[in-house]
């Protein structure tokens, strides 16, 4: 009770908590280099535990992070720069790359709706899941536009990234997808930045392809989501 009052009283406490916990998460990740220990995951878990322990409502914490939330929309715009830097890797295989990213994006959103409908997933949750393979700056905005719950989407995006980042290359191996370009495209289209970090561990070509795929797949998800949502 006293702790929560102290926290609410000082408008800086929320952002201090965010930056501090991210620092801890980042240090853990740098030490271990384990994909599952993504700084965003560890820092969020620490903060959630703290908010629950200290009985601080999320709204109070979120309001104190407004400075970060205001800059958030800018984070999608700057993705144009890595896209521009990597566009040259597309020259040789432009058609297979664009076809692959499009096929992957169409298939993942289509199968998500189909499976969700079959097993009876709650509709609003299904809508929030739709942009899960896009990078977070894009996914959070798309989720709001199509009537999803942006905060849920953000968490699902992180889980998607971690799943693809850890198991993606192994799954691709089982599927006999061995081509370097194809592997990078699949990782980037399905699991955005976290998949891209893993792709760079697989090789230079995979990494460049993945960062290219991440930006294009994200943009494609933004364009296609309003159409897909009509199926839900």
């Amino acid at each position: 009770m006293i702790l929560s009052e102290f926290f609410s009283m000082n408008p800086i406490s929320g952002m201090l908590l965010t930056i501090g916990c991210y620092w801890i998460g980042y240090a853990i990740f740098e030490k271990t280099k384990l994909t599952i220990l993504q700084p965003i995951l560890t820092s969020s878990l620490i903060i959630i535990a703290f908010l629950i322990f200290a009985d601080i409502p999320f709204e109070v914490y979120n309001d104190q992070n407004m400075v970060l939330n205001y800059i958030l929309p800018l984070t999608a715009v700057v993705l144009a720069v890595p896209l521009y830097r990597n566009i040259h890797v597309m020259k040789k295989h432009a058609f297979p790359i664009l076809a692959g990213i499009t096929a992957g994006t169409l298939a993942t959103m289509g199968s998500l709706i189909l499976i969700g409908k079959l097993i009876g997933t709650n509709n609003q949750i299904l809508v929030s899941m739709l942009p899960k393979s896009a990078t977070n700056p894009i996914a959070i905005e798309v989720s709001g536009i199509i009537g999803g719950m942006p905060f849920l989407t953000v968490s699902l995006v992180v889980i998607t990234g971690i799943f693809g980042g850890i198991l993606g290359p192994e799954i691709l191996k089982l599927m006999k997808i061995k081509n370097e370009v194809a592997k990078g495209i699949a990782l980037g289209s399905m699991s955005h930045a976290i998949g891209t970090v893993r792709a760079f561990k697989e090789g230079e070509v995979e990494g460049a392809m993945s960062s290219l795929a991440m930006a294009i797949a994200g943009t494609l998800t933004a364009i296609l989501s309003p159409l897909y949502v009509l199926l839900i």
Partner: peptide, 17 residues
């Protein structure tokens, strides 16, 4: 911004509560 992109999404991720 890209290097520290994830910081902006800590508060929204916490929103899952």
């Amino acid at each position: 911004i890209i290097k520290y992109l994830a910081i902006f999404f800590v508060a929204p991720t916490v929103g899952i509560v």
